[in-house]
Design a protein around this nucleic acid. Structure first.
Length: 293
DNA sequence: AAGGACACCAACCGCTGGATA
DNA sequence: TTATCCAGCGGTTGGTGTCCT
C-alpha cells in the first residue's frame, strides 16, 4: 500500500480572488506544459494556491474556448429543456452549450431562470405549474418555494415569456397562465409499437409507450409500499424484445419473446429506469453509453 | 447624497467514484 | 485488498457593483 503526499498545505495557500499576475502564471504554465497534473501546477507555475483552485480558475475562467458572453434566448431555452429532463446536472447541460461552463449554467439558473419560472407560476424543480402541484398534493400552504438564503430574497420583476419556435420570447401578461401550461407540456418522443415493429432488429430493444398522465414520484412510492397500483389499467406498456434480463413482476409474452408490462404494475425502481429511458429518447446524444439493453 | 437591499458571479466547500501506490 | 489521492461535480457563500428609498 502506498501513500502519496498531499497536493498542498491547505492552511498556507492563498485564497480569494485571483490577480492578473496569478492568471498570467497559469496561462503561461498551460501554454508551455499543457493540462496535466494540477497538483504540480502551483509549484511549477510559482503560485501559492491549491492545485484544485488552479484547476477551477482554468476551467471556469481562463480556458480559451470560453466565450464570456451573456446567455442568448436559445441557450436559455436549452438550459430549461435539459433541466426539465435531467434536473441540476450542470456539467451535462453545459456540454450542450459550447463556451459555457457548468458553473456559468448553475449561476445563471440560480440567479435568472429559476426566478423567471417562479414568476410564471411554474415550480422550477418539477417544471409544473404551481396550480397543478396544488391540485396534485392538495392544499399545501405556502407551497411556492423561497430562496433559502436570507440575503438573496431578491426583488422579482414581472417577467413573462412563452415558447415560440422553440425559443423563449417576451409576451403580454394576459397569456401568462396559458404559456405556463404550454411550457411544461411533456415533449417525450414516444415510439409507436405498431409502426416500429416492422423495423425491429434482432438485437435487444426497448419500446416505451408512456402513460398519458404526468410522472409523479409519490404515486410510485405509495404503490411500492402498498403493493398495488394507482394508475388506470392499460395506461402504458413497456415492451422489451429479445431481452435476457430478469424483471420481477413483469408478464412474459413468450410467444412474442417479449415482456409486456401494464404501467399499473410498474414499481418505483422500474419507474425510475423508465423515466431515464424517456430522457434518452428526449436527448439521445446526452447519455451515450449510459443505457444498456 | 447616503445607506441599505438586491443581483450577480467567482470561488470555495464537501462529497463521490475512479485511479494509484 | 486497502488506504489515500485526485478530478469532477453540485451546493453554497463572500465580495462587489447596482438599484432603490
Amino acid at each position: 500500500m502506498g501513500r502519496r503526499p498531499p497536493c498542498c498545505d491547505k492552511s498556507h495557500v492563498q485564497k480569494g480572488p485571483w490577480t492578473a499576475e496569478e492568471d498570467a502564471k497559469i496561462l503561461a504554465y498551460v501554454a508551455s506544459h499543457g493540462i496535466g497534473n494540477w497538483t504540480l501546477v502551483p509549484q511549477k507555475a510559482g503560485l501559492n494556491r491549491c492545485g484544485k483552485s488552479c484547476r477551477l480558475r482554468w476551467t471556469n475562467y481562463l480556458r480559451p474556448d470560453l466565450k464570456h458572453d451573456s446567455f442568448t434566448p436559445h441557450e436559455e431555452d436549452i438550459i430549461l429543456r435539459y433541466h426539465q429532463a435531467i434536473g441540476s446536472r450542470w456539467s451535462l447541460i453545459a456540454k450542450q452549450l459550447p463556451g459555457i461552463t457548468d458553473n456559468d449554467v448553475k449561476n445563471h439558473w440560480n440567479t435568472k431562470l429559476k426566478k423567471k419560472l417562479t414568476k410564471m407560476g411554474i415550480d422550477p424543480i418539477t417544471h409544473k405549474p404551481f396550480t397543478q402541484l396544488l391540485s396534485d398534493y392538495g392544499n399545501i400552504n405556502d407551497i411556492i418555494p423561497r430562496n433559502t438564503r436570507p440575503s438573496d430574497q431578491r426583488r422579482q420583476e414581472p417577467i413573462n415569456f412563452s415558447r415560440t419556435n422553440n425559443l423563449l420570447t417576451m409576451m403580454d401578461p394576459f397569456q401568462e397562465q396559458h404559456a405556463a401550461m404550454n411550457f411544461v407540456t411533456p415533449q417525450f418522443h414516444v415510439m409507436n409499437e405498431a409502426a416500429s415493429s416492422s423495423t425491429s432488429s434482432p438485437e435487444s430493444k426497448v419500446q416505451v409507450n408512456l402513460p398519458s398522465s404526468p410522472f409523479i414520484w409519490s404515486d410510485y412510492i405509495v404503490g411500492d409500499q402498498e403493493q398495488e397500483c394507482s394508475n388506470e389499467p392499460g395506461s402504458g406498456i413497456l415492451t422489451i424484445e429479445g431481452s435476457t434480463n430478469a424483471y420481477n413482476g413483469l408478464e412474459v409474452d413468450r410467444k412474442k419473446n417479449s415482456l409486456n408490462v401494464a404501467a399499473t404494475s410498474v414499481s418505483f425502481v422500474e419507474s425510475i429506469l423508465k423515466h431515464d429511458r424517456e430522457m434518452q429518447f428526449e436527448f439521445p446524444q446526452l447519455l451515450d453509453g449510459y443505457f444498456e439493453y
